[in-house]
């Protein structure tokens, strides 16, 4: 008995998120669409994982499930972190609040006092190098700056609301897809820096192989319709161009498999 229990307890302890055979279908009866079919995934605390896949692989569905915005049809999702934070493709800042107030919003919802909110928001804004822009409104910021405010806000919601020491989890749904190439490049580097400084676990969804290999420690390839885990790669000790080639080839195979069907 103890022998079977212990590994399970162990695996929950050293994982930020554990998904086991998660299925998600939308609709009922003949019209139902299976979006995710038996996905098993584990993200360690402080780990940076990229989910890679073509459109229709249920990447966004998966993030919504982990974020608790939606419930799986079957299977289980276990979190050991504080409330996961979500970042979307659009910054989705509240247009009536200044940058600083936007960052304070999740802290306010968590019931923090004003002084503590101010201080925490100030720290997070300087973390994304926007300490000077706190008083500006979203329409006065560039696209890249807005996305950095959104990053600070997401960090506030996963780090600020928890007690000290609880690991954070950041869910990112193609957050840089709408930005121009130079800004994206800078933001990717910023994200890696912020990740190192905060030791938050990150689950990052993208369809860009280069982005995935550049950012993540581990790249997970999902198949499309329904989404299943096809393969995983570790990027920690690898030859980057070869890895990109390898993953791209595999991704192409997955996509062309749909032409026949």
């Amino acid at each position: 008995m103890t022998a079977t229990l212990e590994p399970a307890a162990q695996s929950t302890l050293d994982a930020a998120v554990t998904l086991s055979s998660v299925r998600k279908s939308f609709g009922h009866g003949a019209n139902s669409v299976l979006a995710l079919d038996g996905v098993d995934l584990r993200v360690a605390p402080g780990e940076f994982v990229c989910l890679l896949g073509a459109s229709g692989c249920g990447k966004s569905t998966l993030l919504n499930l982990v974020a608790g915005l939606d419930a799986p049809t079957s299977g289980s999702i276990r979190l050991t972190t504080s409330r996961p934070a979500v970042m979307f493709q659009e910054a989705a800042l509240m247009p009536w609040l200044t940058a600083a107030r936007n960052v304070e919003l999740p802290l306010r919802l968590a019931g923090l006092k004003r002084g503590a909110r101010r201080e925490k928001a100030g720290e997070l804004l300087s973390l994304v190098r926007l300490a000077e822009a706190g008083h500006k409104r979203p329409h006065e910021l560039s696209g890249g700056m807005r996305q950095r405010v959104a990053l600070a806000r997401a960090l506030a919601s996963t780090l600020g609301s928890a007690e000290e020491g609880t690991p954070g989890l950041l869910l990112m749904d193609e957050p840089f897809a709408a930005l121009d190439a130079i800004t994206r490049d800078v933001l990717q580097a910023e994200l890696v820096r912020v990740w190192r400084e905060t030791s938050t676990a990150i689950l990052f969804v993208t369809h860009d192989v280069r982005e995935a290999v550049r950012l993540a420690q581990r790249v997970v390839l999902l198949s499309s319709r329904p989404g299943r885990v096809v393969r995983e790669w570790s990027t920690v000790d690898g030859d980057e161009p070869a890895l990109i080639n390898d993953i791209t080839t595999r991704l192409r195979e997955v996509i062309s498999g749909h032409a026949a069907a």
Partner: peptide
Amino acid sequence: IPPLLPRVGQALGAGRLAAARHILLPA
């Protein structure tokens, strides 16, 4: 209201009342 804003509110941890007060009404 753009549908993304209430979703962001939900993701940031706003309950129904808090969402009405901090997101719905100002938006």
